[in-house]
Design a protein around this nucleic acid. Sequence first.
DNA 1: TTGGCGATTGGCT
DNA 2: GCCAATCGCCAAT
Length: 200
Amino acid sequence: MDSVIRRLHRKELPIDTVELARYLIGKTLIHDLPVERLMGRIVETEAYPVGDPSGHAFRGPTKGNRSLYLARGHAYVHLAYGTSYLLNISSELDGIGAGVLLRALEPLDGITLMVRHRRTRRVLDLARGPGRLASAMGIDKRYDGADLCAGGPLRLGREVRESGPIGRSERIGITRAADRMLRFYERGNPFVSGRQRLRS
DNA sequence: TTGGCGATTGGCT
DNA sequence: GCCAATCGCCAAT
């Protein structure tokens, strides 16, 4: 059934970090593993545009953030606090550093394998939060730099269901430029992270 | 070469 | 709600 999900082509992605963050709500993230296909519906994102002091490309290109400078649609995988991998999608033209953080998925397929990747059986908690999302989807540093528009095992797909109303808020867990409204989410979706005010 | 610092999570109070 | 775990990155020494 999921094989009908058409992948997203780079040309379809908006060439703007904030627009891309909004655009990705309702789209799918697919990871084909030998055993099983993992798939989820993107329900929460955050934009880290050019010039944002919280963005990992803020101080210019380094060895660690180079994936953010790839053409929009490439993965930038970062290890946070030594414990959690976070998946970003590069969001501008080749050579410009910016990204969109994927913060939560509504699991659609491969849930039994996601449960094994995580330490919970609660479907609601499988991919609610950026570290949980990466863990459930089997994403780690090996995918840093992967092209998510190229039809490889990890890729973006078209929506299976149109997004409901999209909410907008400040971003979670940062201190610099914390008041900017750069977080997007499907309103009322129970798979969105954060407290009630940030989900409604 | 080093130390301070996170785009988090899960467990405990 | 608070806090420790844990480690790669990078600016400064």
